[in-house]
C-alpha cells in the first residue's frame, strides 16, 4: 500500500485536489482509503465516503500538535487502511503547526498552496514546504500568468528540490502529474520515521504555567531582545 500525506494552509484547496486525485485513482482501478486529521472540526471524511463510497476516517488532534497527532495515529491508520485492502491511503492534514513536519519518510509529502495567497507565503510555511516532495499550486485560474510564474519562482527559491505542479482544482486541470507521483511512490514500509527534526522540546507554558514574562519560567526561556536564542534556566 502507498501513502500520501497532503498538508497546506486552511482553504488552500487540499480537499479539492484530493477529490480529483481520488477520482482518478478509482478510475485507474485502485482502492483508496482517506484519513482526515484536523484540530477540532472536519467533515471531509463524510464527504469522501458519500462521493466515492470509500473507507474514510477522521481524527481530531485537540490538545496535541496536529503533526504530532499524525505521527501518533498513523501506525494504526495504516493497519486500518490495509485491513480495508486499500492500494493508497490519502491523509489530509491541517498542517497548522508551522514548526513540525507533517510528512514521513516512506510516504509521499504533498503541500498545497494557493496562488492567491501572497508572495511571502512560501517563506512562512517552513517545513511544510521545505520537507515536501511536491508543491501543488491551486487557484491558478484566479491570477495572471505572470503572477503564477512569480509565485512558482518564490516557492522554488525557498525549496529548490521540491517538484512544483500547478492545478485548477475547481475543474480538475493538471491533476495527472500528482497521480503519477503517487504511482511512482514506493510501498509504505513497516517502520516509518517522521521527516525532519521535531522542534525544541516542551516549555513550562506547555505544561500549564500561565504567568506572563520569561522570568516566571524555567527550562526553555527567551526574552524579547533575542530573536533566535533560547537558553536553559
Amino acid at each position: 500500500m502507498k501513502l500520501a500525506i497532503c498538508a497546506g494552509p486552511a482553504t488552500s484547496g487540499k480537499t479539492a485536489v484530493l477529490r480529483h486525485v481520488t477520482d482518478k485513482l478509482l478510475r485507474a482501478g485502485k482502492k483508496v482509503a482517506f484519513l482526515k486529521i484536523d484540530v477540532q472540526y472536519a467533515e471531509e471524511d463524510e464527504m469522501f465516503a458519500e462521493l466515492f463510497g470509500i473507507p474514510t476516517r477522521k481524527v481530531y488532534s485537540g490538545e496535541l500538535c496536529p503533526d504530532h497527532c499524525n505521527v501518533m495515529v498513523l501506525g494504526d491508520a495504516i493497519q486500518w487502511a490495509k485491513k480495508n485492502e486499500a492500494d493508497v491511503l490519502l491523509v489530509e492534514t491541517a498542517g497548522l503547526c508551522l514548526r513540525c513536519s507533517p510528512y514521513v519518510d516512506g510516504g509521499l509529502g504533498l503541500v498545497v498552496l494557493e496562488a492567491t495567497s501572497g508572495m511571502n507565503l512560501p517563506l512562512k510555511v517552513g517545513p511544510m514546504l521545505s520537507l515536501a516532495d511536491m508543491a501543488v499550486i491551486t487557484k491558478i485560474d484566479r491570477v495572471s500568468q505572470a503572477e503564477r510564474e512569480v509565485f512558482r519562482a518564490r516557492i522554488q527559491d525557498v525549496a529548490p528540490s521540491v517538484l512544483i505542479r500547478e492545478v485548477n482544482a475547481l475543474h480538475g486541470i493538471g491533476i495527472d502529474p500528482i497521480v503519477e507521483q503517487i504511482d511512482a511512490t514506493d510501498e509504505a514500509p513497516e517502520r516509518m520515521l517522521l521527516r525532519g527534526n521535531p522542534p525544541v522540546g516542551t516549555c513550562t507554558i506547555c505544561v500549564g504555567k500561565k504567568e506572563v514574562g520569561w522570568q516566571s519560567h524555567f527550562g526553555v526561556v527567551r526574552p524579547l531582545e533575542n530573536q533566535t536564542f533560547y537558553r536553559g534556566e
Binding site: T116, N120, A146
Partner: peptide, 18 residues
C-alpha cells in the same frame, strides 16, 4: 494583482524565471 511585491522585485523575479 494580489502580489504584495514592489514592481521592481516582481519584474526581476519574472525575468529571472522566464
Amino acid at each position: 494583482f494580489l502580489s504584495d511585491l514592489p514592481v521592481r522585485e516582481f519584474l526581476k523575479t519574472h525575468a529571472r524565471i522566464r
